[in-house]
């Protein structure tokens, strides 16, 4: 990886982290609408995977979609405005955190239904194959979602049709309160790929370089007509499942042990080590990310709320 790529991945992770930290502060200090599911700790997955995608590629996301949106290049102002339910939001204030989408950059939507977005990625990959446009579709989903029928049906279909899809399972150990090993009889969810005759890979989801390398293989294979891959990324969510939920079901010390391997801190050290960058470049990345998030908040705050009947414009095309 070039130093330039490494810095770009770092920048993306930092933007996601600061977006989430800022959002948490906003939810804690004022009356924000709705709820949210935060991505802190899992930034390396979205950054490492989307680092290989171009604007015309597609992703589908989950209820925990802020990071996917930012990594795919969505306009952060519009994403933040959606959190505020403003009419300038990427969904015009109609969707909120669980439904953020930016079709202009191929982000086909977060999803309130666990597993709901996985087959959409198969459909987008089908379109890419049909048109022969060289595009790829990536489905992001959790460990919990891999127990939904939609996961199994989607992998099977993508495999038999040989579609340019990549299935990225974000294994953060928990689905809501439930440890995945209490409801999933295999250690590596990636091994489920075998049932569908596709390759299954495991990446360290706390290491953006590892994610980037393995996602690169899977995406290149898909683009070249080699069919789908299941890529499991092992990571951890730092926050509660949603909004202020206090994750009492996690053993003491678990969070700290994962935080010790924080993907952003680790990458900063490598940038200044092997990649030979200086503190000024690291500080510069942080300053850029801070400015971007601050601008997004100011944009959201200054934006108008939708009128009470604005939804009428969006029911039918």
């Amino acid at each position: 990886m070039t130093a330039e790529t490494a810095l770009a991945l770092y920048q993306t992770m930092l933007e996601i982290r600061l977006f989430e930290e800022t959002l948490y502060r906003l939810f804690s200090t004022r009356d924000m609408p709705g709820s949210m599911h935060q991505y802190n700790g899992e930034e390396a997955i979205a950054a490492g995977v989307c680092g290989h995608l171009v604007k015309t590629d597609y992703i589908t996301s989950t209820h925990r979609g802020h990071g996917h949106c930012i990594a795919k290049g969505a306009d952060m102002n519009a994403v933040m405005a959606e959190m505020f339910a403003k009419s300038t939001g990427c969904c015009a204030g109609m969707g909120g955190s669980m439904h953020i989408a930016d079709f202009g950059v191929g982000m086909l939507g977060a999803n309130g239904i666990v597993g709901g977005g996985i087959p959409h990625a198969v459909g987008a990959a089908w379109k890419c194959a049909y048109k022969g446009d060289g595009g790829v579709a990536v489905a992001f989903f959790g460990d919990g979602a891999s127990n939904e029928g939609s996961f199994h049906e989607s992998l099977n279909l993508a495999a038999v049709w040989g579609l340019p899809a990549v299935f990225v399972c974000e294994n953060n150990l928990y689905g809501f309160s439930t440890h995945y090993r209490r409801v999933t009889p295999v250690e590596d969810i990636a091994c489920r790929a075998a049932s569908y005759g596709m390759e299954g890979l495991v990446a360290d989801g706390m290491d953006v370089e590892d994610v980037y390398a393995k996602a690169g293989d899977a995406i290149a294979k898909a683009r070249a007509g080699g069919g789908p891959t299941l890529l499991e990324c092992k990571a951890y969510r730092y926050m509660g499942h949603s909004r202020f939920e206090n994750p009492t079901y996690r053993p003491k010390g678990e969070l700290e042990s994962w935080k010790a391997r924080d993907p952003i801190g680790a990458m900063a050290a490598r940038l200044m080590g092997g990649y030979g960058l200086g503190a000024s470049e690291i500080d510069g990345a942080r300053a850029r990310a801070e400015a971007k998030v601050a601008e997004a908040v100011a944009f959201a705050e200054g934006s108008p709320e939708p009128g009470p009947k604005d939804y009428e414009r969006y029911l039918h095309a």
Partner: peptide, 8 residues
């Protein structure tokens, strides 16, 4: 479908 914005 039920919109997100509180006023809606």
């Amino acid at each position: 479908p039920i919109p997100f914005a509180p006023a809606c």
